[in-house]
């Protein structure tokens, strides 16, 4: 029975051995196995092909497969390391590992920087920050005048852009986060420590013994 199950899961594109993934991430082997249960659920919610499509990601986040959101798009793009439009199991586990409570803060800081560097220039630019603020306001049905938005962006830039060149580089971002640690709050998911309880894998064999 164990062998049949093993053969079955290894046919799924992008499947990687839990031992390999555990070795590269903050997860244990049993946590990776539990994540596979979550992954199976997410990757078969619309198209049953063992891959998480954008619509499936949106469905899981917003309970609606058609809800477009700038930040969800950015997260999806960062998870989709191969840039082939879908999230494979290995990509899912490696990316989620950034959000593990035991993962180094430096990894979380870097991930957040890449998340907010919308145009991959190596900087968070003023226009990008404004675009994100506007997207958040739209998502929240909040209406602020352009002057107020400009003031919020200006104030943040005056605090973060230490060399005053109009963009936030990695070093400035690190310093800004050190002064405002709450900015990384959403980079840690306490759930990941209890993932084996939330998604027991019910695997009767151990991959380690293979």
């Amino acid at each position: 029975m164990g062998c049949l199950f093993t053969k079955h899961i290894k046919q799924i594109p992008g499947y990687e051995e839990p031992t390999v993934l555990a070795g590269e991430t903050s997860f244990t082997v049993s946590e990776v196995e539990a994540l596979y249960e979550l992954f199976k659920k997410l990757s078969s919610s619309i198209i049953v092909d063992g891959l998480i499509h954008k619509e499936e990601f949106q469905l899981a986040l917003f309970k609606n497969s058609n809800t477009r959101n700038l930040f969800a798009d950015r997260i999806f793009d960062l998870f989709d390391v191969k840039r082939n439009g879908v999230i494979e199991f290995g990509e899912f586990v490696r990316s989620l590992s950034v959000f593990h409570p035991n993962t180094a803060i430096s990894e979380k800081i870097e991930f957040a920087f890449r998340l907010y560097d919308l145009r991959h220039t190596g900087f968070i630019e003023r226009e990008e920050l404004k675009e994100m603020v506007l997207a958040l306001l739209k998502e929240s049905d909040l209406c602020l005048s352009d002057d107020v938005v400009e003031t919020i962006v200006d104030k943040t830039f005056s605090e973060a852009d230490l060399n005053g060149d109009g963009k936030i580089d990695r070093e400035e971002w690190k310093e800004f986060v050190a002064r405002n640690p709450s900015l990384l709050k959403n980079m840690t998911l306490p759930y990941l420590k209890d993932i084996t309880i939330a998604f027991p894998s019910f695997v009767l064999y151990s991959e380690v013994e293979d």
Partner: peptide, 25 residues
């Protein structure tokens, strides 16, 4: 007061960044 908000604090409240919802059954 909105003008005192840190733009990144504001952004970090986005539902699109709340991956905790992935774990909801």
């Amino acid at each position: 007061r909105p003008v005192m908000m840190n733009a990144f604090e504001l952004i970090s409240t986005s539902q699109g960044l709340n991956l905790g919802t992935l774990f909801e059954k």
